[in-house]
């Protein structure tokens, strides 16, 4: 019961984090999402309130990508097509979804999976890397991207690199 509640809260937090983006002040570049590692982020300035909009995710806060209803319906359709071996159709359907949500790593991973089924491992890997670049602060999506990269390397017999990619996926989201 408790775990269900917790999951629900996490999902809600994830949704709100990526569903909304704060309006930027004129001319301001997009703000930092999540500096991590050895970086030393700027300290808050005492006495000077930083007017952070409430819907902005806190620095370093994890987020979780999800699909909007349109993209979600298209992914369902694409999976049916791919299941029937119609990879070209499935890819065309996923391209429709990508035109609606081009910055969603989940769609790039989905398309990469179709490419892998078509034995186009080079494109599968490239799409995994594209997804990885988009999936900052979403450990789940990053792990899925690394799995795709690992599988595409593996299918080309590049096993040591595949193992390394698999390791990175495992470190992000242990299976």
């Amino acid at each position: 019961m408790h775990t269900r509640l917790l999951t629900l809260i996490l999902i809600a937090a994830g949704l709100s984090a990526c569903a909304t983006r704060a309006a930027l002040p004129p001319g301001a570049p997009p703000s930092a999402e999540s500096p991590t590692g050895t970086a030393q982020p700027e300290p808050p300035i005492p006495g000077q309130a930083v007017p952070a909009p409430p819907e902005q995710p806190a620095p370093g806060a994890p987020r979780q990508f999800h699909l909007g209803p349109a993209a979600s319906a298209l992914v369902t359709q694409a999976r049916t097509q791919a299941g029937g071996g119609e990879y070209g159709q499935a890819a065309a359907t996923l391209e429709r979804a990508l035109r609606i949500e081009p910055g969603n790593p989940l769609l790039w991973i989905e398309l990469g999976r179709v490419r892998l089924s078509e034995n186009n491992a080079a494109q599968a890997e490239a799409m995994g890397r594209k997804a990885l670049a988009l999936a900052t602060a979403d450990a789940g999506a990053q792990a899925a991207a690394w799995h795709l990269i690992a599988d595409s390397l593996h299918s080309r017999g590049r096993d040591p690199e595949a193992a390394e990619a698999e390791g990175r996926a495992g470190a992000l989201a242990p299976r």
Partner: peptide, 23 residues
Amino acid sequence: DASMPDNVVEVHIEYPTGLRVVP
């Protein structure tokens, strides 16, 4: 609004000198 990569950090510098400053 590309998301900032994990290995990159936003900092502020003085435009004429390039010296790091606090906003």
